[in-house]
Lab assay of single mutants.
Amino acid sequence: MAEQVALSRTQVCGILREELFQGDAFHQSDTHIFIIMGASGDLAKKKIYPTIWWLFRDGLLPENTFIVGYARSRLTVADIRKQSEPFFKATPEEKLKLEDFFARNSYVAGQYDDAASYQRLNSHMNALHLGSQANRLFYLALPPTVYEAVTKNIHESCMSQIGWNRIIVEKPFGRDLQSSDRLSNHISSLFREDQIYRIDHYLGKEMVQNLMVLRFANRIFGPIWNRDNIACVILTFKEPFGTEGRGGYFDEFGIIRDVMQNHLLQMLCLVAMEKPASTNSDDVRDEKVKVLKCISEVQANNVVLGQYVGNPDGEGEATKGYLDDPTVPRGSTTATFAAVVLYVENERWDGVPFILRCGKALNERKAEVRLQFHDVAGDIFHQQCKRNELVIRVQPNEAVYTKMMTKKPGMFFNPEESELDLTYGNRYKNVKLPDAYERLILDVFCGSQMHFVRSDELREAWRIFTPLLHQIELEKPKPIPYIYGSRGPTEADELMKRVGFQYEGTYKWVNP
């Protein structure tokens, strides 16, 4: 592979701008107003304001973009700056750019259920340069409990009458099928589907988006991507930290609602779906819905739930269990780990287990898709061969690698495990991989909904998990304890083995 010439960040961002501006969906010269509902909250200060700053800094926003914060707290732009700027990672050389960014910011205080507050917000936006005809993007960085009041008031008082209007809704989209349907029906009564952007930030990850290209742009994968060759698929999300004093919020939802029903299920769809007619948003989402419709409700015998306990040999936070978090209700049975087996009941995947695993306070930070292939028929190497695996590593250190057998150097035919490896950090030294939120917010500006969740996708996802969630809430089974920093409950490994996964433990990928 030829040595790549190092590029400056300015040059890299210039390439990104060229890609972005050559499309006809990006209205570079139009006025846009980006409204952050819930501007005083954690999500706004840690993710949304920093993301908008990065896009502005790199010249990736339309030229005439204004940012308006809205929340109940009586704040000023200076207050917003004070709480969000520490997350910007701005350099001293960017000081003038930073001043320009905050000059485009404003803030309006108001209630979430008060019509007069929204009329005041609308008047404020109209007073901005060309504000009355601007395109408006409303980001709901809010708890779902206020979605209905907020969307109703936005629709009645704050819509642009000339430009387009788009609304970005953060997960969780309800707690179960019934609450999700209620919320979807409410929002759909106010906005068209092409105006609604239900954001799952995992769909903005580079390697998640790469799944489609790997599958449908490489001839070698087509013939082997089926039940005849693939023994099982494992989708993993692991965090090495616990709730760390923020367990009160987590306890309301648990690990299945927080990660599995959305992030992991979306990745499953991209692995299992048929080739779409095109890369058009609805063509892709149509195929994802077909996959979900082929999955039956989760069966309790295919589920393992766990909850982390303190590690007596650990240090600091590792010595504390979930129930030691003062914000967690006493005696909570909320799971911090889950392993679930699903089956896609169609011709391509009949009988292939899709194993979804996620948890907190585990032994490493990792998100990946792992396809394990069947054993080689007619073994001539005296059971020395391990199964081939194709691994798409989402985070950290984005990579695609194939675990395969090669001859060990020497005189004899002794096979050993090795890999074919594409590590993004080595291959793409001159490429700026956008943060997931950067990519998705740019998608909203461009009107691309491919990486957002459609209402029928959402409904099918909740259909699969709601009976299990209701059973857990009714019966309150005690989750299996696992030690902070471990791989999780051993019962999860036993479940995976029972459905056909072979864990060798003899080879570990190392970032080159």
Rank of each mutant, 00 (worst) to 15 (best):
H32P: 02
D58V: 05
R182H: 09
Y49D: 00
S117V: 04
Q161S: 07
I48Q: 01
I234V: 09
F21N: 06
H27N: 10
A127E: 09
G248I: 14
V12H: 15
T10L: 07
R57L: 03
F101G: 00
H155W: 12
N218V: 00
I256F: 03
V77I: 13
H27C: 12
A109L: 05
L140D: 00
T243G: 09
N229Q: 12
S8V: 06
Y249A: 14
Y107S: 07
S117D: 14
A109W: 06
P223I: 00
C13T: 11
L183K: 09
R136G: 00
L177Q: 08
L55T: 05
N229R: 00
Q195L: 02
V150A: 06
Q83P: 02
Y112P: 08
L214M: 12
N165P: 00
D79H: 07
R175W: 09
A39D: 02
I67G: 00
N210S: 08
A90C: 14
E148T: 14
Q178M: 12
A231G: 12
F87Q: 03
S29D: 14
L211R: 00
A115D: 10
F173Q: 07
D113L: 06
Q119S: 11
P240E: 15
G204W: 15
H124C: 08
N165C: 10
M159Q: 09
G23I: 11
P172R: 03
A103M: 13
S73P: 08
D100L: 08
F88P: 00
M212W: 08
N185I: 09
T151M: 03
P240M: 10
N126A: 10
G248A: 14
F250T: 05
I15V: 09
D79N: 07
T10S: 15
F237C: 08
W225S: 01
I187N: 09
A2N: 13
E63W: 13
V146W: 10
S180A: 03
F56K: 02
A217I: 00
I234N: 13
G59F: 02
E3T: 07
F138C: 00
S132C: 11
E193N: 06
H155R: 09
D42M: 15
A78C: 08
D24I: 08
L55N: 05
R227F: 04
E239H: 06
L190Y: 12
Q209E: 15
A25D: 12
N64F: 05
Q28N: 06
E94R: 02
A44H: 00
T10I: 06
G110C: 02
K97V: 04
Y118V: 05
P50Q: 03
D176N: 09
L98M: 08
P144W: 12
K95N: 10
E156R: 07
D176A: 04
I199Y: 02
A25Q: 05
R120W: 11
K89W: 05
F102D: 01
W53R: 01
G254N: 07
M37L: 11
M37P: 00
N153L: 08
V68A: 01
I80Q: 05
G69P: 01
G222K: 13
L55V: 02
G245Q: 12
L75T: 07
F237S: 05
N210M: 02
F237V: 07
E239P: 00
P223V: 02
E148G: 13
D79A: 06
E252D: 11
P92G: 11
I35F: 01
C158G: 02
N210F: 01
S123P: 00
E19A: 10
L98K: 03
P62D: 03
T236S: 11
A44T: 02
H201R: 09
L20V: 10
L142T: 07
M212K: 01
D42H: 14
A127K: 11
F101V: 00
R175Q: 12
D228N: 09
E99V: 04
H129Y: 03
A90D: 02
M212N: 02
Q119W: 09
N218K: 00
G248Y: 13
N218I: 00
R72W: 04
I48C: 03
R74G: 10
D181G: 10
Y107A: 09
K82V: 08
H186G: 11
P240N: 11
N185G: 08
L121N: 00
T151L: 06
Y112W: 05
M37A: 07
R166H: 08
K45T: 08
A127P: 02
K97L: 08
D58H: 06
Q4R: 14
L7V: 05
L61K: 00
G59Q: 05
D79V: 03
P50L: 00
G131E: 06
Y202M: 15
E19F: 04
K45Q: 10
D24R: 06
R81K: 09
P172L: 07
K82A: 10
I80L: 12
W53S: 00
P50S: 04
G163D: 00
F173G: 06
D200W: 02
W54E: 14
L142K: 03
I154Y: 00
N210R: 12
G204I: 15
H27V: 10
P240H: 07
V208N: 11
D42L: 14
I52V: 05
F216K: 02
V146D: 13
L128C: 03
N185W: 08
F101I: 00
E252C: 08
P223C: 09
G14I: 03
A44R: 00
H186S: 05
G59P: 00
I255V: 13
Q209K: 11
M207W: 15
D113E: 08
I33A: 05
R120E: 05
M212Q: 04
F87M: 08
A78V: 04
A149R: 14
E156A: 11
F250W: 11
E148D: 14
I256E: 00
L128W: 08
Q22G: 10
C13V: 11
M159K: 11
Y49Q: 00
C13H: 08
Q111H: 09
A134L: 05
I52F: 14
P92V: 07
L20S: 10
I234T: 15
S73Q: 08
A90L: 10
D114S: 08
F237N: 05
I80R: 02
R120Y: 10
P172G: 08
I220T: 06
R257P: 13
Y147L: 15
S189H: 14
W54G: 13
R182W: 10
P143T: 07
Q178P: 08
V233Y: 01
I154K: 00
V146M: 06
S132H: 13
R120D: 12
I33T: 06
V5S: 12
W164V: 07
I230P: 01
C158T: 11
K152T: 09
Q28D: 08
S184Q: 06
I256D: 02
K152M: 08
S179K: 09
I230G: 01
D100I: 14
E244I: 10
W54S: 06
R192E: 07
N210W: 06
E19M: 05
R215M: 02
R57F: 01
D194C: 05
R227H: 08
K238C: 12
K205Y: 15
I33Y: 08
G69S: 03
Y197C: 01
S73V: 05
L190E: 06
P62A: 07
E99T: 05
R192A: 07
F241K: 13
N229T: 12
G174E: 08
M125F: 07
A217K: 03
F66Q: 10
K97I: 08
Q111G: 05
V12E: 11
R72V: 07
G247N: 11
L203V: 15
D194L: 02
Q28H: 07
R219W: 10
E206H: 04
I187W: 03
G131R: 06
L140P: 00
R17Q: 08
A39P: 00
R74Y: 11
A103H: 11
A217T: 06
R192N: 13
K97F: 03
S29T: 14
R227Q: 07
R246E: 15
N226H: 11
A2Q: 07
N135H: 07
V233H: 01
L130D: 10
E18K: 14
F34V: 13
G131Y: 05
